[in-house]
Amino acid sequence: MELKTDGYRLDRTLETHAEAEGLRGEIHGRHPMDDLLRTDRLPHIWCPGCGLGTALTCFLSALLRSGLDLDKVAVVSGIGCTGRVAGYVRLDSFHTTHGRAIPFATGLKLGNPELKVVVFSGDGDLVTIGGNHFIHAARRNMDMTVICVNNFNYGMTGGQAGATTPVGGITTTSPYGNYEYPFSISALAAASGAVYVARWTVLHARRLERSIVEALLKPGFSLVEVIAPCPTGFGRRNRLRQGLDAMHYYHEHGVIQHGADPVKTDIELEGPVIEGKFVDGEKPTFLEQYRRQLDRLRGA
């Protein structure tokens, strides 16, 4: 193919993509989710057995059910496998730097309070490198929904340990077993002031979807933790070789416990996965607090 460049334009790239999209249309026809996906970016990069497809589908279904104006929904991701979500959704979407999705989303929301801002990223991104931003956004009750996919490791870089890896977990940087204590993401959010906290495995897709709808419609900082298999990075080193093995594990070890004390939601290797809606409270959000102050100022 001839490379056509007109100054800084990249016609070859575009043509190639257009061609691929046309082909896909012919072969597969249309999918009900196509309107919400950047189909010209598919196939996605995720491995077979990965939980991210389910997590994304649950999010998109929830989005449709929420009734939100999709032109006013923005998705912000950081770096990592989950961080690629922003690139697949046909919404205003921002793929930012590692750990910084939440502060970027904070600026986006405050710049235009009409937006519904969703942060969709992974455990390494949101609570390890971005842990400080996570707790402070929760503390402020910043108006945003955070969907954090927790697969207990850094998948994209090849399965390293992080702040969520259970004690004993084998990863490429904990080859003899992880000996650091992990965070419970849900407990961290709850302790930091989140008004809505729920956790589901991707096996519990309908419940997950319902929780995401609730989170999207909840004013303030809402967190949905999604437990998902990463057979390539984590599972195959920890006796969950296939994605399906993880699903069996969730089936056998998932314990639905609404209202569970978030402090008691630690996930241990080969232990139960406590899931459910842990927090559903009411508290004025950052923007409500800000507007109250404005009213006081104007009154004074």
């Binding site: 912000v76 921002f94 930012t96 730097t97 750990g99 910084r100 939440i102 502060p103 970027f104 989303a105 904070t106 600026g107 986006l108 929301k109 405050l110 710049g111 235009n112 937006l115 400080n132 931003h133 402070h136």
Partner: peptide
């Protein structure tokens, strides 16, 4: 913000909100 990394990002986010 909680630090300067966050500050810079929030500024970018606000700019992308117009």
């Amino acid at each position: 913000m909680e630090d300067e990394m966050a500050s810079m990002n929030a500024v970018l986010g606000a700019s992308w909100a117009g």
